[in-house]
Structures are given as structure tokens and as C-alpha cells.
Design a protein around this nucleic acid. Structure first.
Lengths: 357, 357
DNA sequence: ATGAAAGCGCTAACAG
DNA sequence: CTGTTAGCGCTTTCAT
């Protein structure tokens, strides 16, 4: 039943035990662990042998204490009380982060805070308690206390998204060009002959929402289509938000013929509500969305959406964070992960306009 | 710009600095941190004052080293290479775990392994490297190396799900009664007049799949309906699996009139494929699923599914893990989280049978 | 009620 | 190339 397993089940075997067993000094063992080049192959073999025999595993805390580093990355999620958290976006970024972290032998420490205040406290503990070597922020809020704190402390960190106030905060971040993506998407709808294009955004506290909105507006303005207030709505909750937005928009005397929706999950809500109302997509209404999470292709109808390469965002963020750890003096950098439109079946030419065009 | 912030930006303030400032010994400061009852209130105040002034934060690694505990829980996910990972199940369990962990001031350390081997190595490091005080396994595979290892080491851990070999492994776990849930669901379909009920299971390496299958079979047998091999299929990948399963099943000379599907996300795949084939749910085919993740209500049509209280699973698992830490001699326990059927619109009476009944 | 000192397990000068 | 030694920052006997 026992899988391999060291000698004893119990007492911790330390570097000293190994040293004794191998007839060398503890420091030598330490050097072998670090695979120092100044140790003879013979000794290395001898020590490694002893380690194996005793089932030695280095104690992480001791090492961190002596080293002043932890080989772990702190990952900060938005407050988990919120349902945003349920977005499949998160497992996917984490997969990306994990992947890079693994490559370079970093571990992941997760924030668990449910409120902004809790998160702030936690981050403080991570930083000052030396629990992590760097932090990755999985969101970027408009005036974020946590980000400000990290910035002031000169603690290595990366954000996924971007600081709202980019001019005054020189920060390393990984982001999509959400402005351009949103603009492009709106233009696409315009090209399909739509003019009454509504926008359903997320929480306006998030920078991504602002960027989406501006892209949308600029596209309309460039096309000389008026931006209407009743056509831009924002909702915090993903699913309910999508549903409520539809109610608002479809109650308007003049209904939109196309929708730009901030998030795929929200789009699921939108589609559901539309279905209940008997409005068909894309026949009566075209929809285009953002993120391309895995289930997106399974909506009814399959949604056209912008793939933002979530995995890549995570991977790059981890990369930047680790670079910062290795070289704290490194200049900040801004990585833009390319997006791409994934055409499926939720968009269609606007029939009404065809005659007029 | 600076948020509060201690005195200096730079050098680490330690317990000694605080001691000096407060005119006490380091040990006294330590006792104040632990809020020892043998310290006068006066001294406590004085020390706390000094801590505040200096912006003191305890060093976690030092503390862990001295204490032999870390106040952190290791969370082990299934291999993240697999797409299983994208299941919204995970954010939700983690939310549950976080919640309990927070209450008791525990942190979360996440496994990042992409292969079984990597995970095994990682867990070994967590355990022997004293990185965590206990481990929560987020899955239960049929003959899991990690679980066996933890068991052999007598390391505190909990699994979500259950050991396959329950008789021989006395393990604390948190689970649903997946057998009963599956049986109930099948019986429900039977009551609706269905007899040709097919079963689409997940990866047979997971214990939950086995339990589902047995519940399904027993329900049929009790009703004296023959269990047909061509009606039980298993698929690993969630979305593709669902789609492929449908192809298999609908190619059969005698098609099923109802489906029991192992997972909501899989059901999305099933619904998508069915839609493409022009088979309508629930008119032509009834479907019932498991998990009730958040988006489940947004399928087309909204799916009937079994709510397994994912959050609760996580919360209880964390609870058990921490109990084990506090009292390693505590007896193992098995917690069953209740499930409940959430009726929506994917099931319907079997018309064919109505006449014959 | 508080201080002195040893030690948790490892690393990193400094010697040789 | 390898050993000696002094910490890393905190906790915890053992004194007082």
C-alpha cells in the first residue's frame, strides 16, 4: 500500500540529518540542493544518495526565512461574495497563470476576501508578512485601493486589465485592447447595416467597461450615428444583468436591432430573456459579445464573440510578475494580448437597412 | 496618495524593533501578538501602540518555522491541462472553501500541476515542505495516488467526493449522495412515462461517475426496465463529450426518449447538438442533469437539474480540514450534503407511453 | 508579569 | 571544494 516512502513515517528529517549521513557539513547539503557548481560530483552524489535514503524534503518556511523569498505568487480575485466570481473567466486565467508558474517553480497563493476591505487586509498581510514574492491582480477597478497600496509599497505586481489613471501610474499590466475590440465589433455591426445598436456594459467601476463603452461610442460617432443614452445600459450582475438589460431595451419605443454585450455569460442571460419574449436571434436582433469562454459556443444560437485569449492573459501576467521578482529594477511594461473576432450565428444583416442602403 | 502606511517605506520592522520602541523584551511582543493572558493590559497597549507606530506586520515564514504550522490550506484541483478545469464547479467550491477559511484565518495555497505526476510531486512538496497544514482534494479518482499518499502519511486532508474503496480507507470526506440523486432522477423520468432512458456519464475514473451509473441502473432494474449497453455512454470531455454522446445515441435504431446527463456543462453540449439535429427538448427528448451551476438556468430550454450545493461542499470540506488540523486525533467523518431537484423545462411526460399506460 | 536564551531548518558569508 | 558560524524573525521554555 505504501508508495515508495522514506525511511520513517514520523520525525522530520532535516539538512543536518542528511549532512551527518553523508559525512559532510550542513552547508554542503544546502549547496547540493541549490546545485552549486562548486561542489564535486562525488559529493553531490553522496549527498543526494543520503537525501533519498532519508526521504529528505526541504522545509519551505525555513528556506523562505533565510532567503527572503517564497517562490510563490499571490493571486487576487475580485471579492468572492459577488457572483462575478462564478465567471468561467477565472478558472481560465488561473490556468494560464499556473502554467507559467509551474514552469518556473512558483506556487500560487489565493486571496479569499469577500469584501473589498477583507481583500485589502489580506493583500497587506501577503506583502508585509512576506507570504508571496509578487502579486497578480485579476481585475482592475477604477480607483482601486489595493492597486494603490501595491504601487506605493513598490511591491512587484502585475494587473490584468489596466490602471484607469495610466498617465499617473506607471504600472506593469497585461490587457487586451478593449477599446479597439469594442470599436471593431460595433463597426462590424454597422457594416451589417445596423444603426440602432445598443450597448450592455458591465460594472462601470471596472476599467474594461469604460474601455468598451468608449470604443462603442467612437465607432458610432465615426459613422455619424447618434449615441443614444437609452441605448447604453450597465449592469453589475452577469446573468440577471443581462436579463434586466433586455427588458429595458426591448421596452423602448424604438427597439435596437443589434446589441453589444460586455460578457459571454451576460449574453446567456440576454439570450434566455429574448427567447422568453419570442424575439429571435439573429433574425430580429443581432448580438455580439466578449470573451469567448468555453461554453460560449454552446449558446442558442452559438454566439459571435471576441476571443480575448484569457489563458494568454494569465500566462503573460505570471510571466511579468516573475520577471519583476527576478529583476525588481526592470522597467514597467504593458503587454497587449491580441483579440480576435469569432463569428458564429448571432449576427445577421439588418434587413430593414438593405433596402435603404 | 499614500494610504496610511507605516513610518518608513523600506526596511522590515521586526519584533525586535517593536520591543525596543516599547521598552520590553521581544518575547513580550510575541506574547502580545498571541494575546497571551499573562501580559498586563498596560504592556499590551504600549506594545500595540509601538506596533502601530512602526507599521509592524508579523513575518509569516518566521512564525511558521517556529510554530510548525502555516495557517494555510492546500487546495488540489484535477490536472489543469484537462478542460474539466473550466467547469464553473471549481470557482464555486473555492468560494465555499474560501469562506470557511476566511472565518478561521486560513489562507489558500493552490496546486498548479498539469499532469497527474506533477500534482503528485506538488502535493509531496506541500506536505513534506510544510507549506500547508491540511489539504483538500477537489476530486476523487478511482485509485488515486495522491489520496493514497496523504492517507499513508497520516496528513490531515479531506476529499470532496469519496474514496472508491471506502471499506479499506477510513477517510474524512464531503460528498453528495450521488447514487441516490441519480436513482431519483431516473425514477422521475420513469414516472414521466419514459422507458428508453439513456445515461451519459463522465470519466469513469471518477467515483462520482460510478455512483451516478449505479443509481441509474438500480432505478431501471427496480422498475424492471432492461439496462441496455448502448444506452450508457461515458465521455471525458465536457462539451465535446456531450455532443458526441448525442451522435451515438441518436444514431441508434431505437432512440432514447430521455437522457440522464452527468454534468450541466455537458448538457449544454447535448442541447447544442440536439438543436443542430432539429430534435427538440423536451418535446422529442427529456433531459435531466446534475450540478446546477449558475448558468444552468440559462440553457435553451432551461434545464432540469439536481442542485448539489457546490458552495456547501466547499464550505464543509474546509471545515473538516480545519477540524483535523486543530485536533489530529479526531475521528474521520463523512458529511453528505443534501441535493435537490430543480425542475425547469427540459423534461416532459412521454406521450408515447401515455396511451399504453 | 516579563526577560534571556535556545532553537525552528535553512542559507550565505567567511575561512581555509 | 568544503566546513564554521552567524543570522533570517518568531516562539517558547526556563528563570526571576
Amino acid at each position: 500500500m505504501l508508495y515508495e516512502g522514506g525511511e520513517e513515517g514520523t520525525m522530520n528529517v532535516t539538512i543536518k540529518d542528511v549532512a551527518k549521513r553523508a559525512n559532510v557539513a550542513p552547508s554542503t547539503v544546502s549547496r547540493v540542493i541549490a546545485n552549486s557548481s562548486r561542489i564535486s560530483q562525488r559529493t553531490k552524489d553522496k549527498v543526494r544518495e543520503a537525501m533519498k535514503e532519508l526521504g529528505y524534503h526541504p522545509n519551505f518556511n525555513a528556506r523562505s526565512l533565510a532567503n527572503q523569498n517564497t517562490k510563490t505568487l499571490g493571486v487576487v480575485m475580485p471579492n468572492s461574495a459577488n457572483k462575478t466570481f462564478q465567471n468561467p473567466f477565472f478558472p481560465e486565467v488561473i490556468r494560464g497563470i499556473s502554467s507559467k508558474a509551474r514552469e518556473l517553480d512558483y506556487g500560487l497563493y489565493l486571496s479569499t476576501g469577500q469584501t473589498e476591505e477583507e481583500i485589502y487586509q489580506e493583500v497587506q498581510n501577503m506583502v508585509q508578512g512576506k507570504r508571496v514574492d509578487a502579486i497578480i491582480l485579476l481585475y482592475s477597478r477604477v480607483n482601486d485601493r489595493v492597486m494603490n497600496y501595491l504601487y506605493e509599497q513598490h511591491f512587484p505586481f502585475t494587473v490584468i486589465g489596466r490602471p484607469y489613471d495610466e498617465k499617473n501610474m506607471d504600472i506593469t499590466y497585461v490587457n487586451n485592447d478593449n477599446y479597439r475590440a469594442s470599436k471593431m465589433v460595433t463597426e462590424y455591426l454597422l457594416l451589417l447595416g445596423h444603426e440602432r445598436i445598443a450597448f450592455i456594459g458591465g460594472n462601470l467601476d471596472f476599467v474594461v467597461t469604460v474601455d468598451h463603452m468608449e470604443g462603442y461610442k467612437d465607432a458610432l460617432e465615426n459613422a455619424e450615428v447618434a449615441v443614444r443614452n437609452d441605448f447604453t445600459v450597465f449592469h453589475e450582475e452577469l446573468q440577471e444583468g443581462g436579463q434586466e438589460a433586455v427588458i429595458d431595451l426591448m421596452s423602448l419605443p424604438e427597439r435596437p436591432t443589434a446589441l453589444v454585450v460586455a460578457d459571454d455569460i451576460m449574453t446567456f442571460g440576454v439570450l434566455r430573456m429574448l427567447d422568453e419574449m419570442g424575439i429571435s436571434v439573429p433574425e430580429d436582433l443581432s448580438i455580439i459579445s466578449f470573451n469567448n469562454v468555453l461554453i460560449s459556443e454552446l449558446s442558442h444560437p452559438p454566439m459571435t464573440t471576441v476571443d480575448i485569449n484569457i489563458y494568454g492573459l494569465g500566462y503573460e501576467a505570471a510571466n511579468c510578475a516573475i520577471e519583476k521578482i527576478m529583476n525588481p529594477e526592470i522597467e514597467t511594461k504593458q503587454v497587449i494580448i491580441p483579440h480576435r473576432l469569432v463569428k458564429r450565428q448571432s449576427c445577421k444583416k439588418n434587413e430593414a437597412s438593405i433596402s435603404t442602403s
